[in-house]
Write a protein that binds this DNA or RNA. Structure first.
Lengths: 126, 126
DNA sequence: TAAGCTAATTAGTATGGCTAACCAGTTTGG
DNA sequence: CCAAACTGGTTAGCCATACTAATTAGCTTA
């Protein structure tokens, strides 16, 4: 919890962690339906509807209808959204670099391995 | 974020992550003033006031005045609070055990080392 | 002893998520 | 082939959790 609060503060202005996370999913998975995004982010469909509306509002994503199934709304990053994501990464990296600079190579490697393991745990969780 | 949302859901009813975290701080550090707790949890004093009021309401902590400085409010775990903390750990451990069971010893060791490193990072942050 | 500092609180606000209920499409079984 | 059931998305209403700004009480110091 401490870490989350800390990171939220460090992200500072601009865009929330959830927004950046959603952009990240879209970036790595390509276009997604809202349900797919909800699933990827581990949040409810209604919440994603709201989040997507905000992203659309800021011009970070675009919606497109699926021609074969008119219930589906597929969204994808706009160039602007990609830019925001990249900038956020740069800013976040600057912060992390400062903090992680106090670690030695062995410790960094441990964190890297741990990240892979945790990612796998989360991915396979239902 | 995914992990946080997941854990929040998994903690299920009973008490929130923040509550348990606060109880944990009190358990490991002993009695704390509200400001000290705010500092330990990385949250603002007003937020801690509210949190502490909730804990008091549930009988998980007790307040005591500092005789030498009457501005200070020192809080400590009640037996009931200790019990809740222990139960939460048991429940959380059951969940983690199920999930971590899929990892081998080497991976578990990596996570353990990573946890120490991250804890150190957070502790030394500001 | 007044001025200023610190601890805690109160009040008001924002964010970010949820469930329940609903509508619009699609699929399926009689 | 059409009614029932299901699925994707949305809307409405709500709750939890945290914040900042302002206030109060107590302490410290010039």
């Amino acid at each position: 919890m401490r870490t989350v609060r800390r990171l939220r503060k460090e992200t500072d202005g601009e865009h929330s962690v959830s927004v950046i996370a959603a952009l990240g999913s879209l970036n790595s998975h390509g276009p997604l339906t809202l349900s797919e995004l909800a699933d990827a982010e581990g949040m409810s469909r209604p919440s994603v509807t709201v989040l997507a509306a905000a992203l659309l509002d800021h011009g970070l994503i675009a919606k497109e209808a699926d021609p074969s199934d008119r219930r589906l709304v597929r969204i994808h990053l706009t160039p602007s959204g990609k830019r925001v994501l990249d900038q956020s990464r740069t800013r976040r990296n600057a912060f992390l670099a400062k903090r992680l600079g106090t670690l030695n190579v062995e410790e960094l490697r441990t964190l890297d391995r741990a990240a892979s393991i945790l990612l796998r745990l989360v991915e396979t969780s239902r």
